[in-house]
Structure formats: structure tokens, C-alpha cells
């Protein structure tokens, strides 16, 4: 075997298990964050839309509460948010550092508020006549949301989700600070701190490929279902 090939093979054998482990850790954090974005971010964004002035559930108190919550979380520099949440995570989960599930809590929180804003923006783009039509047909609030608003905003909701997803990948790369691991942590630990730049670039290439894939998948899906 060529000495260069042999060296490459040894490097791959040495780092592949750790790289896979890091990818799995990123997967855990991203998985929790995505579920949180859909389960809580989508309703929160819808609430922001519905309770705003002139909207079907207009309620300035509720709107302000939701709005302030989203703004506060989004104002935090993410690293400080991770640190600030430590006591709460310890209370909820028993430990705040050292594993990807503990590291998922700040990811979930940022995913919720990030996607909520995208959802709010997407729903604001739905023509006013759609709401008027639903109301003229005597639609209930859930019917208005599911059968009218989400149907008309669906491609925009997916584009927003894709954008949030890509941002979350970026957020996940600093979760190594609290021992969450992940591909970003792998790149910093082995590539930057141990001066093994080839390892760092491999990790970066993985991140780039992943982002590209998600972006392409999201945009293609949004285009496919957009009949406007």
C-alpha cells in the first residue's frame, strides 16, 4: 500500500468511531430541537399571529407576553443562554453537563423561539381574504388554523423550518462547552486544540454537506407543495 494511503487509512480508523459518535450526539441534540420547534414553536408562532392587533384572537396582553418571551430568549447570546440555563436543566434533568440530552435543553428553547418567529412571519403573509373566507363559513379557530392558514402558508412554513434547522446546526456546534459533544465539538477538540487541521476540515465538510442537503431538501419540498 502506498505510504500516503496507509496514513490516510490509519487516520480514518483512528477517528471514524469518534466522528460517528459526534454525529450521533449532534443528531440527538438536533432531534430534540426539531421536535421542540414543531411541537411548541409552531403553536407559539401561531399564537403570536392570532393574538396580534386586528387578528381573529386579538389579545394584547397575551400577545405581549408571548412577544416578550420570544424577544428575551432571542436576545441572549447563545453561549450565555446555555450557561444561564444550567440551574434549570439540573433541576429538570438531574445534570446540566456531560451528555447531549442535557445539552439539548438550550437547543430546544432557541429552536422554539426561532421557529415561532418564522411561523408568525409566514402567517402574516397569508392574504387577509383567507381569514375572512374562513370566518364567513363559520370556521372554528382550529379549523381556521389547520384548514386555511397552514394550507396557504405551508411552503413558507417549510422554508422557515429549513432556515431554523440550518441555524440550529450552527448553534449545536458550541454545545461542547457544556460537554454536549457533537460534530462542532469534535472539530474544535481534535482539529483546533490538537492542531490536527485535516480532522477539523473533515468535520467542517460533514457540516457543509449536511447543511446543503437540508437546504436543498427543504427548498425542493417547499417548491413542490407551493401551488400559488
Amino acid at each position: 500500500m502506498d505510504p500516503t494511503d496507509q496514513l490516510l487509512s490509519e487516520r480514518i480508523q483512528e477517528y471514524a468511531p469518534r466522528l460517528m459518535e459526534s454525529l450521533a450526539e449532534s443528531g440527538i441534540m438536533m432531534g430534540f430541537a426539531i421536535v421542540a420547534a414543531i411541537v411548541f414553536g409552531l403553536p407559539l408562532g401561531t399564537l403570536l399571529f392570532l393574538t396580534a392587533s386586528g387578528k381573529p384572537m386579538e389579545n394584547s396582553w397575551l400577545y405581549q407576553m408571548a412577544n416578550i418571551f420570544v424577544n428575551i430568549v432571542r436576545s441572549f447570546p447563545f453561549l450565555l443562554l446555555v450557561i444561564a440555563m444550567q440551574p434549570a436543566i439540573r433541576l429538570l434533568y438531574g445534570r446540566a453537563t456531560g451528555d447531549p440530552i442535557a445539552a439539548s435543553f438550550p437547543m430546544m428553547l432557541i429552536a422554539i423561539v426561532l421557529y415561532a418567529r418564522f411561523v408568525e412571519q409566514s402567517l402574516l403573509d397569508v392574504p387577509r381574504g383567507v381569514i375572512e373566507t374562513a370566518q364567513s363559513m363559520g370556521a372554528t379557530l382550529p379549523q381556521l388554523v389547520w384548514k386555511f392558514l397552514y394550507v396557504e402558508a405551508r411552503s413558507s412554513l417549510i422554508i422557515g423550518f429549513t432556515t431554523a434547522f440550518v441555524s440550529l446546526i450552527s448553534y449545536s456546534t458550541i454545545m461542547g462547552v457544556v460537554g454536549g459533544g457533537g460534530i462542532g465539538d469534535f472539530a474544535i477538540r481534535y482539529g483546533y486544540q490538537r492542531y490536527e487541521t485535516d480532522v477539523m476540515y473533515v468535520a467542517i465538510i460533514f457540516i457543509i454537506i449536511f447543511v446543503e442537503l437540508i437546504q436543498k431538501l427543504g427548498l425542493n419540498l417547499a417548491r413542490k407543495i407551493d401551488k400559488r
Binding site: P127, G129, V130, E132, T133, S136, M137, F148, V151, E152, R154, S155, I225, D226, K227, R228
Partner: peptide, 15 residues
């Protein structure tokens, strides 16, 4: 029992 039609039609474009 009441239906309405609109100037701008108000159709759902994704349906």
C-alpha cells in the same frame, strides 16, 4: 345557511 362570494374570489391557492 349563509354563503358569501368576494371581489377578490378568496380561493385557497394551494387547493
Amino acid at each position: 345557511q349563509v354563503a358569501m362570494i368576494f371581489q377578490e374570489f378568496n380561493l385557497l391557492n394551494n387547493k
